[in-house]
């Protein structure tokens, strides 16, 4: 069993310092902890779209991204007795979604799978229409890790240490990865400006 070796015991919410609460606050965390249904609804409305975007960026699959979001909240239902009051729910949710997505990415790499958007029997009418094909193309050449860091930095506006907590890395590594990803993205999008050699291919990079 190949995968049996993979899970380790590192914990999701107890290891690294909390990132500062942002949209979520102390009292919401307390209410989540006590299992108040309204608090879960509020937290869902606050975060679901952002989590979905993040998941979609990693998976490019509407159904799988939705599943990842739902999964994160169901995990939270189960984990809530353990959540500390000052722990950022936001970071917790992002982490949880990220784990699900990475697992999915790994699973696909083992066994190529048709995204459920493309399955004939359902979901054909709800494919997400992306508005910037050129950018999407450029993003698709980045690694999933680069894409997630870029998303957390530019779309979510997290700083280096916040991203580091979510992706389980350190600040320096996050900065380095973001810089690499940005450079690569710029090079793809603006080959002439960024490459001094006009002959260099806009899309090739090993």
């Amino acid at each position: 069993m190949r995968r049996a070796a993979a899970p380790q015991t590192t914990t999701l919410i107890e290891e690294s310092p909390a990132i500062a609460p942002r949209t979520t606050d102390h009292s919401l965390a307390l209410r989540i902890g006590s299992g108040e249904a309204m608090a879960f609804t509020e937290l869902y409305e606050l975060m679901a779209e952002r989590l979905f975007r993040f998941a979609y960026r990693m998976l490019h699959d509407k159904g799988a991204a939705e599943d990842a979001v739902q999964h994160a909240y169901l995990e939270l239902v189960r984990a809530r007795p353990k959540l500390e009051e000052d722990r950022s729910l936001e970071a917790w949710l992002f982490k949880s979604v990220r784990f699900t997505c990475l697992d999915e990415v790994r699973r696909r790499s083992r066994r190529p799978e048709i995204p459920s958007d493309q399955l004939p029997e359902e979901g054909t009418d709800d494919i997400i229409v992306l508005i910037d094909p050129e950018l999407e193309q450029a993003l698709s050449m980045l690694t999933p890790q680069q894409q997630e860091v870029l998303h957390l930095k530019h779309v979510e506006g997290y700083d280096g240490s916040e991203i580091a907590e979510i992706v389980g890395s350190n600040r320096a590594a996050v900065y380095a990865m973001a810089a690499r990803a940005e450079a690569r993205l710029r090079k793809t999008l603006e080959p002439v400006e960024s490459a001094t050699d006009p002959a260099s291919s806009p899309t090739r990079e090993s």
């Binding site: 899970p7 590192t10 107890e14 999964h71 995990e75 189960r78 697992d103």
Partner: peptide, 30 residues
């Protein structure tokens, strides 16, 4: 394929249904 998968995801199911190496959400299994 799905059968194999069901089996292989069991590890993560066990703890938390969370999915990653470093991802077993500690908190979730009272």
């Amino acid at each position: 394929e799905d059968g194999a998968e069901a089996d292989s995801s069991e590890d993560s199911e066990d703890d938390s249904d969370s999915t990653d190496d470093d991802g077993d959400s500690s908190g979730d299994d009272p």
